[in-house]
């Protein structure tokens, strides 16, 4: 009986997570267009619903009713597989992400995470790595020059930025003495990691921007020179899959930044419910992502590679060494 309840709870949590992740791109697209509009002294969507609130619904209906076009020379199997491969990893990663300790509902303690893996961080990076397959299959299968060039760029970018991203979190792991995200947040109860790991945060955030394919690192879909990059040939609902995956990764990087460097659900000064603190911090970083997008121009491809290999990688390695030496000499804070 207990097993059934536990299983049911897990199924419920997973279903809830999937629903949230599928629905969140709707308000996020609205927010992005609104912020873009106001930064450029426009108003953004205004006509569908109150201040354009129903605009994402209209977009969704449009995407669903559009022709699902597959190019004649495309590899049909890979072409259909790629959007799913791009969409699944960001969803899978959220299984390992804690959103808080626990809440009590009707006298039962319900934990706010699906599973507390002791190698959660490793799992996160391993699964995010799979997303590259969606990109490379999508670009290759479409049999279009724009798409192939876009996917080549994206693969090189994602692979080279995954390394500094992975190195940047080692300092955090050393401080928490654990790779479980829950333990990492618990270790930040008094002082957030941003105080001890500013360089780690910087490297992680920049690499996260590149990982999420956002400006200033959105080389994969540089509209000016590549059409739309690896998803040039996609239309209708398959294109929507790529969009949802993009927003899920933006969300994921924001969540990881908050958990690893900004104390997760630990609050400061104002006593708010932990979950609310968590949501507020994540919302702030999502806003920063959008804000960056409409402020900075795009880096050139060689600059992108130079930043990844010549700046972020040495910085993250130095961060590991200095953190290790300080931990050995001074001891844990």
């Amino acid at each position: 009986m207990e097993l059934i309840v536990a299983l049911g709870l897990i199924v419920f949590k997973v279903a809830f997570l999937i629903a949230i992740l599928l629905l969140l791109p709707l308000p996020l697209t609205w927010l992005e267009r609104k912020i873009a509009g106001h930064i450029q002294q426009r108003m953004g969507p205004m006509r569908v619903g109150w201040h354009g609130l129903l605009q994402p619904m209209a977009d969704g209906i449009k995407l669903l009713t559009k022709e699902d076009h597959i190019p004649a020379e495309a590899d049909r199997f890979l072409f259909k597989l790629a959007p799913i491969l791009a969409l699944a990893p960001p969803f899978v990663v959220f299984v390992a992400i804690p959103f808080g300790e626990s809440v009590s509902v009707l006298g039962h303690e319900i934990t706010l995470y699906v599973s507390n893996m002791n190698v959660a961080l490793l799992f996160v990076f391993a699964v995010i790595g799979i997303e590259v397959y969606g990109v490379i299959f999508g670009g290759w299968a479409a049999n279009s020059k724009y798409a192939v060039l876009g996917s080549l760029r994206t693969c090189a970018q994602m692979i080279s930025y995954e390394i500094p991203m992975g190195f940047a979190v080692i300092g955090v792991v050393m401080l928490a003495q654990s790779m479980s995200l829950l333990d990492i947040v618990r270790a930040q109860a008094d002082v957030w990691n941003i105080v001890y790991q500013p360089v780690g945060f910087f490297v992680f955030f920049v690499a996260g921007l590149a990982e999420a394919q956002r400006i200033p690192f959105d080389l994969s879909e540089a509209e000016g020179d590549l059409g739309a990059g690896f998803h040039t040939e996609y239309s209708g609902i398959r294109f929507a899959f790529f969009m949802v995956s993009e927003y899920a990764i933006v969300l994921l990087v924001s969540v990881l930044v908050v958990i690893l460097f900004f104390g997760g659900w630990n609050g400061v000064l104002i006593p708010l419910p932990p979950l609310l603190w968590f949501v507020l911090k994540v919302a702030f970083f999502v806003y920063v992502f959008i804000w960056f997008r409409f402020t900075f121009p795009r880096y050139r491809y060689d600059q992108l590679m130079a930043i990844g290999w010549k700046v972020l990688l040495p910085l993250s390695m130095a961060n590991i060494i200095i953190t290790g030496v300080l931990l050995g000499a001074v001891g844990a804070p």
Binding site: I35, H38, Q40, Q41, R42, M43, M46, W291, F292
Partner: peptide, 17 residues
């Protein structure tokens, strides 16, 4: 640059609806 765009975000839109 970020400060500039942030300032613009709260300026009045020039859109004539």
């Amino acid at each position: 640059g970020l400060a500039l765009t942030f300032g613009y975000m709260f300026s009045k839109p020039v859109t004539m609806q």
